[in-house]
Design a protein around this nucleic acid. Structure first.
Length: 644
RNA sequence: GCCGUUGUAGCUCAGUGGUAGAGCACUUCCUUGGUAAGGAAGAGGUCGUGAGUUCAAUUCUCAUCAACGGCUCCA
C-alpha cells in the first residue's frame, strides 16, 4: 500500500497504481465529478496519473487556480479540434491558458477569420464538448513524434519538438484531435459547459515581429453557464470604470483628430486634478530636499548623441526639425536637460546629493497600435527628478526614493503593488545595454541590497533594464484589475560619464556622480488614468474637480446659495450653485452622476437657521450643519488629503 | 508598425441604394417642487475623410484617418 497525504495533513492508504481520480471516487462521486486535475508532491498532473509511491496529493477543482488553468488549457485543445474540423490544413503553434481563459495561435494560410467564424466555432466546440471525449495522454519517442508531424507537414510542431529531449515527449488526444502537449488536462471535454470565444488577434510567431504573424483566437470557458454569465456581467461593470469612459463623462480629458492621436487635451476638470497632484509632488519633494527646475521642450541633436538616447530611441522620438542646418528634437525624456543643469556649475561633494525635479513635458512617438487612452500617449507630463549622488550616498538616496513611493501609496490607498527589478542581459552588452559589465553587476547588487534591507517585495526580471542601468518598475493594479506600470526608478552609471559630469570629492579629485532617475507618480496621463479607475471616478475631496455643489430647493433660495458659495470659494473650496429651475431630486441625481463629493441642500429651513443640509456623494443625507462647522470639516478633509 | 473589429446628433444606439431616426444632454417656456429623472416646444447630423461603381451612395467597392481587442515595443 502507498501513503497519500492530503492537504489537511490526513494520511490514507491506497493500492499502488491508484489515480487521484480513483481516490476522489473513493471519497465521493460528487467530488470525483468536480476533479479537474491533481497536484502530486506539488506538481500538477492529470487526475488519471497512477501513483506508485508515497506522496502528498491535492485534488484540483475549479476552485484552485491550477485547476482553472488546466481547464482552460484543455479548452484550448477543444477549440483547436473545432478549428481543425472547420478549417482543413490549419497548423497550430501553442495554445496555453492565460490569466482569464486561453488562446491558441495558428497558421490559417490565407484564411481570415471573422466574428461569425467565432460564433460557428463556439457552436462546434459545444457539440464536441458534449461528446465527453476523454483527454488521453500518450508518451511517445521523439522520432515517432517527429515522424507524425513530418507527415502532417506541420513545421510549427516540428520546431517545438526540436527543443525537446527524447523521453519527455507526450501527446494528448481528445476526440479526433491529437496535439503535442506536456499537459496536464482535465478528465474529459464534457466538463466544459460554457464557452465564449472573445477575440481574434494577430500574434507574431515566437513573439518576434520579424516572424510571420499567426492568427490567435482568445476564449474563456466555465464549468457552468452561470459563471460565464457572471463573467460577462463583470466585464460590463469593468467597462463602466474604464478611464476612457469616465474621463469623457467627467470632463477630465478628450482627444481630437485634428490635434492628433495620443495627444490628450486636458479639460478644466482634469486640469484641477493635475494641479492638485503637482501640489502634492512639490510639497513632498520640497520636504525631501529636491530643487525644482524648468527646461525647454526641445534640444539639439548633439545632446541626444551625447546622452546616447538617439541610437536607442530614435524611432520613438518625433522626427527632428531642422533650422539653419541644426536638427532639434522634441524631448522624449528630461534627463539630458537636467544633466546640463548639473554641468552648468562646478560641483563639490558638499553640493551632493543634488536632486533636480521637474514636471517635464515629453513627447514620444509611440507606435500607432500602442496608443491606449491615457495609458499610452505621445505627450506626457512626467513627475521626474534626477538625483546626483556619490556611491556612498547611493543606498540612502535610493531608500529615500522608495520611501516616497510608499508614502504615495498610502495617500492614494494603493494596497497591491510589486516592484520589478529589471536587470541587464550580459549577452546583449554593447547592443541593448551600455558595455560596462562590472558596473552593471555592481549597481544591480546595490539596488538588490537596498530592496532587501527595506523589506520591499520585489521580483527580478532579466533583460528588461534601461540601456544605461538597472531599473525598478512599480506594478500596480486598478480596481478593474488592469495592471499598470506606474513608475520607474532607475540607476544610471552611464550618463554621468557620457556628459562628463563631475564633482570634486573630499580628496580634491574629480569624480563622476551616480544618477538616480525617479518618477514615483509616473506621468499625469497614466496616473490620472489609473486614479479614474481606482476611484471609479469618485475622487477624494482633495482631488475632486468640483468639491461642493449647492442645490437650492427653489429659486427663492438661490441668493442664499450664491452667498454661501462665495464663502466656500473664499475659503479655497471648489464650489458651484445649481440654480436651474429643476426639482431637487433632479439636481441631486445630476450631481450624483457627476460624482461631486458634497452636496449642500438649501431650502426654507436652512435659510431660516443659517445652515446647509449636507449630502455626501454615494452616502446620502448626513445632516444639517452651520457653514463654519461644515467648512472646518471639509477643510480638514482636504488638508489631510483624506482618501475617502 | 502588424492582425482583427468598428466609425450615423454632445452621449448611448436604431436604420436605409432614392440626401436620416430614438432616448438622454442642450435652448426656450410653463412649473417653485425637501434628498437619484416635473411638463411642453425647439434647435442640432456633408452618416469619419477621399475616390470609384451607379440615373442616384450614408448604404456597395477601394483607399485613407481614427478608435477599440490583441501582437511587437515602452528611455
Amino acid at each position: 500500500m502507498i501513503n497519500v497525504q492530503f492537504p489537511d495533513g490526513a494520511v490514507r492508504n491506497y493500492a499502488p497504481g491508484s489515480t487521484p481520480m480513483d481516490i476522489a471516487k473513493s471519497i465521493s462521486e460528487g467530488l470525483a465529478k468536480k476533479v479537474l486535475a491533481a497536484s502530486l508532491n506539488g506538481t500538477v498532473c492529470d487526475a488519471a496519473t497512477p501513483i506508485h509511491a508515497d506522496c502528498t496529493m491535492r485534488l484540483l477543482t475549479w476552485d484552485d487556480a491550477d485547476g482553472r488553468s488546466t481547464f482552460w488549457h484543455s479548452s484550448a485543445h477543444l477549440m483547436a479540434e473545432a478549428v481543425e474540423q472547420t478549417i482543413p490544413g490549419v497548423k497550430f503553434w501553442v495554445g496555453p491558458a492565460v490569466e482569464k481563459g486561453f488562446y491558441y495561435d495558428m497558421d490559417l494560410g490565407d484564411r481570415h477569420l471573422t466574428e461569425e467564424d467565432l460564433v460557428a466555432l463556439e457552436k462546434k466546440m459545444n457539440e464536441l464538448a458534449k461528446k465527453n471525449s476523454p483527454y488521453v495522454r500518450k508518451e511517445i519517442s521523439k522520432s515517432d513524434a517527429v515522424q507524425y508531424f513530418d507527415e502532417k507537414g506541420d513545421e510549427y510542431k516540428l520546431d517545438l519538438l526540436a527543443g525537446l529531449e527524447d523521453g519527455t515527449i507526450t501527446f494528448y488526444t481528445q476526440g479526433e484531435f491529437t496535439d503535442l502537449c506536456r499537459g496536464p488536462h482535465i478528465p474529459h471535454t464534457g466538463l466544459i459547459k460554457a464557452i465564449k470565444l472573445t477575440s481574434i488577434a494577430g500574434a507574431y510567431w515566437k513573439g518576434d515581429e520579424k516572424n510571420k504573424q499567426l492568427t490567435r483566437i482568445y476564449g474563456v470557458s466555465f464549468p457552468n453557464q452561470k459563471e460565464l454569465d457572471e463573467y460577462l456581467l463583470m466585464l460590463e461593470e469593468a467597462k463602466k470604470r474604464d478611464h476612457r469612459k469616465l474621463g469623457k463623462e467627467l470632463g477630465i480629458f478628450t482627444f481630437d483628430d485634428d490635434v492628433g492621436p495620443g495627444l490628450p487635451l486636458w479639460m478644466p476638470n482634469g486640469t484641477v486634478v493635475i494641479e492638485e497632484l503637482e501640489k502634492l509632488a512639490k510639497e513632498t519633494e520640497l520636504d525631501a530636499g529636491y530643487k525644482r527646475v524648468v527646461t525647454p521642450h526641445i534640444a539639439k541633436e548633439s545632446m541626444y548623441l551625447t546622452s546616447g538616447h538617439l541610437p536607442y530611441y530614435q524611432d520613438s522620438m518625433y522626427p527632428p526639425m531642422e533650422l539653419e542646418g541644426i536638427k532639434y528634437y522634441l524631448k522624449a525624456m528630461n534627463c539630458p536637460h537636467h544633466h546640463k543643469i548639473f554641468a552648468a556649475e562646478p560641483r563639490s561633494y558638499k553640493d551632493l546629493p543634488l536632486r533636480l525635479a521637474e514636471y517635464g513635458t515629453c513627447y514620444r512617438y509611440e507606435q500607432s497600435g500602442e496608443l491606449f487612452g491615457l495609458m499610452r500617449v505621445r505627450c506626457l507630463h512626467m513627475n521626474d527628478a534626477h538625483i546626483y549622488c556619490s556611491k556612498e550616498d547611493f543606498a540612502e538616496e535610493f531608500r529615500a526614493v522608495n520611501d516616497m513611493y510608499i508614502k504615495y501609496f498610502g495617500i492614494f490607498g494603493i494596497e497591491k503593488y510589486v516592484m520589478r527589478l529589471s536587470l541587464h542581459d550580459p549577452a546583449k552588452l554593447g547592443q541593448k545595454y551600455i558595455d560596462e559589465p562590472e558596473l552593471w553587476i555592481e549597481t544591480e547588487q546595490m539596488v538588490r541590497k537596498v530592496l532587501i534591507e527595506s523589506n520591499i517585495p520585489f521580483v527580478e526580471v532579466p533583460d528588461e533594464a534601461a540601456f544605461y542601468g538597472p531599473k525598478i518598475d512599480v506594478q500596480i493594479w486598478s480596481a478593474i484589475g488592469r495592471e499598470f506600470t506606474l513608475a520607474t526608478n532607475q540607476v544610471d552609471f552611464a550618463q554621468g560619464r557620457r556628459f562628463g559630469l563631475q564633482y570634486t570629492n573630499k580628496e580634491n579629485h574629480p569624480e563622476t556622480p551616480l544618477i538616480i532617475h525617479r518618477a514615483p507618480l509616473g506621468t499625469h496621463e497614466r496616473f490620472i488614468g489609473f486614479l479614474l479607475e481606482h476611484y471609479a471616478g469618485k475622487f477624494p475631496l482633495w482631488l475632486a474637480p468640483l468639491q461642493v455643489k449647492l442645490l437650492p430647493i427653489s429659486d427663492r433660495f438661490n441668493e442664499y446659495a450664491h452667498a454661501t458659495c462665495a464663502v466656500l470659494k473664499k475659503a479655497g473650496l471648489r464650489a458651484e450653485v445649481d440654480d436651474r429651475s429643476e426639482k431637487i431630486g433632479k439636481k441631486i441625481r445630476d450631481t450624483e452622476l457627476m460624482k461631486v463629493p458634497y452636496m449642500f441642500i438649501i431650502g426654507e429651513k436652512e435659510v431660516g437657521e443659517n445652515t446647509v443640509a449636507v449630502r455626501r456623494q454615494g452616502k446620502g443625507d448626513v445632516g444639517q450643519y452651520s457653514i463654519s462647522e461644515i467648512l472646518t470639516t471639509l477643510t480638514s478633509e482636504i488638508n489631510n488629503r483624506h482618501n475617502n
